[in-house]
């Protein structure tokens, strides 16, 4: 697994982000990726985002069910650390 993702924002500026985890769904057959830039929001949670990875491109996640899944995985992985991550709506240009 490559640890990093390069993403460009709407003004065309590119940014390198670290991947937190990836997984595939047996039912949807899609590959999901969750990534972070380590920026923190006002309550100290680390910002992260999730997308579907398809043919090397990132696609926004739209269903509530998929987001719930990703949140649960995040909680499960983080339970023994002191870190707080929060999944935000994607504000990067994914295309």
């Amino acid at each position: 697994m490559s640890e990093k993702l390069t993403i460009s924002n709407t003004s065309g500026k590119s940014k390198e982000l670290d991947i937190l985890f990836t997984f595939e769904s047996r039912s949807t057959k899609k590959k999901y990726v969750t990534y972070t830039d380590y920026s923190k929001d006002s309550d100290g949670s680390i910002n992260c985002w999730s997308s579907i990875l398809e043919n090397g491109k990132l696609i926004s996640i739209e269903t509530e069910e998929e987001l719930q899944w990703i949140n649960k995985i995040l909680e499960t992985i983080m339970v023994s650390t002191k870190l707080k991550y929060r999944i935000n709506q994607t504000d990067y240009n994914l295309n």
Binding site: F21, F23, S25
Partner: peptide, 13 residues
Amino acid sequence: KEIDKIKINYKTI
């Protein structure tokens, strides 16, 4: 059982 091939980046956590 739904989750397949999970990979965690142990540096980021």
